[in-house]
Computed example of a mutant assay.
Amino acid sequence: MTATVPTPSATTTMEAAVQRRYGGPEHMHLDTVEAPQPGPGEVLLEVRAAGVDRGVWHLMTGRPLVIRVLGFGLRRPRQPIAGEDVSGVVIGIGAGVTRFSLGDEVMGAAKGSYAERAIAKEDKLVRKPAQLSFAEAAVLPVSGVTAQRAVERAGIEKGQRVLVLGASGGVGSYIVQLAVAAGAHVTGVASAAKAELVRSLGAEDVIDYRTTDVTSLDLEFDAILDVGGLTPLRRLRKVLSPTGALVIVGGEGGDALTGGVGRQLGAGIVSLFTRQTLTSFVAVTAAEPLEALAERIVAGDVRPALTRTYPLAEAGTAIADLAAGRIAGKAAVVVK
Rank of each mutant, 00 (worst) to 15 (best):
T2I: 08
A3L: 13
V5F: 06
P8I: 04
T12K: 14
T12A: 13
E15H: 11
G24A: 14
P25K: 10
M28F: 00
L30P: 03
D31N: 12
E34K: 12
L44N: 04
R48W: 09
R48C: 08
R54M: 04
L59G: 00
L59T: 04
L74K: 14
L74V: 15
R76H: 14
Q79W: 03
Q79G: 00
D85M: 04
V90P: 02
G94C: 06
A95V: 12
E105A: 13
G108R: 00
I119E: 02
E122T: 06
D123F: 13
V126H: 01
R127F: 06
Q131R: 14
L132W: 15
L132N: 05
V142C: 06
V142S: 01
T146G: 02
Q148W: 11
A150P: 03
G155N: 10
G155S: 06
G155A: 05
Q160H: 12
A167I: 11
G170A: 11
G170Y: 07
G172P: 05
G172S: 08
Y174L: 11
Q177E: 07
L178W: 09
L178H: 02
L178P: 05
A179V: 13
A181F: 12
V186K: 09
V186L: 07
E196I: 01
L197E: 05
V198S: 01
L201R: 04
D205T: 15
V206Q: 04
I207V: 15
I207P: 00
D208W: 03
T211G: 05
S216V: 01
L217M: 15
E220A: 07
F221V: 06
I224F: 07
D226C: 07
G229K: 06
G229P: 04
L230N: 11
L230H: 14
L230I: 13
L233W: 04
R234N: 14
R235L: 11
L236D: 02
L236W: 09
R237W: 10
R237S: 06
V239C: 08
V239A: 10
L240Q: 02
L240F: 04
S241A: 14
G244A: 10
G244S: 11
V247H: 07
G251C: 04
E252C: 01
T258W: 08
G260D: 05
G260A: 06
A267C: 06
I269N: 05
Q276V: 03
T277A: 04
F281V: 10
P289S: 13
A292W: 05
A292N: 11
L293E: 04
A294K: 05
E295W: 02
R296A: 08
R296H: 12
D301W: 09
D301L: 07
D301I: 09
V302I: 15
A305E: 11
R308A: 11
Y310I: 01
A313H: 12
E314K: 03
I319M: 00
I319F: 00
D321C: 00
L322Y: 02
A323L: 07
G325E: 12
V335I: 15
